[in-house]
């Protein structure tokens, strides 16, 4: 079951004219406000800019939000930023969902405002539906052994081993042959300066 007392905030971004130029963002905002458990629906010119992010944080406090949907661009570009944003307002970063109404909608649906708006509304609806099933997640922390294994003692393995060792890490360099050096050691001279290889 989804969490009780869900309080979802939806933040619809104009992205200047990138979204608002093809999509009626105000209509999307109004539609978002009607979706189940949405208690705040806000429209911004640029949600990723500082004022936009502050608005999200303010709304989280003001409306006691516990899920946030940002309807703007691709999560591959801005999810990390908005996760930090809601974390700054005390929410677990995994309670964020993004609705991609730019790359997947406004930019690929030119000249048909009605269809683009209809699609944007749907994308927001799907994101809000998913937000119902988001839970706080704790990232597990695991210990790291401060040592590295370098497999292969050619010029690449040698350089990697030396760099790591110089940086203070323990390095095991494993080479199959009786000596390190690899193909590099067999070269007489190397280009472009025609110097010795070893």
């Amino acid at each position: 079951m989804p969490t009780e007392n869900l309080r979802i905030g939806v933040f619809v971004c104009d992205c200047g004219s990138n979204i608002a130029g093809a999509v009626d963002t105000e209509a999307v905002r109004e539609y978002a406000a009607t979706l189940p458990n949405v208690v705040a629906a806000v429209r911004n010119k640029y949600t990723c800019a500082d004022p936009g992010q502050q608005e999200i944080q303010r709304a989280i406090y003001e409306h006691n939000l516990n899920r946030v949907v940002v309807a703007s661009c691709s999560p591959t570009s801005y999810e990390a930023i908005f996760r930090k944003c809601i974390e700054g307002a005390g929410l677990n970063p995994y309670l964020l969902e993004m609705a991609n109404i730019r790359e997947h909608c406004s930019w690929v649906t030119p000249g048909d405002r009605e269809a683009a708006t209809r699609k944007a509304k749907d994308i927001v609806k799907v994101a809000v539906a998913r937000a119902h099933w988001l839970y706080p997640q704790d990232e597990e922390e695991i210990p790291v052994t401060d040592a590295a294994l370098v497999i292969g003692g050619g010029v690449a393995g040698i350089q990697a081993a030396l760099d790591l060792a110089d940086a203070g890490h323990k390095v095991y360099l494993v080479e199959k042959k009786p000596s390190i050096g690899g193909i590099m050691a067999q070269l007489d001279k190397v280009y472009p300066d025609i110097e010795c290889s070893i």
Binding site: I142, V144, L149, G153, L162, V171
Partner: peptide, 26 residues
Amino acid sequence: DVGRHPNIELLTYAEVEDVSGYVGNF
């Protein structure tokens, strides 16, 4: 330098036979 470096254990004429574990803990 590799042969002399105090942080490098050089294992020549050697082969990796098995790797288990995961990031940070191989």
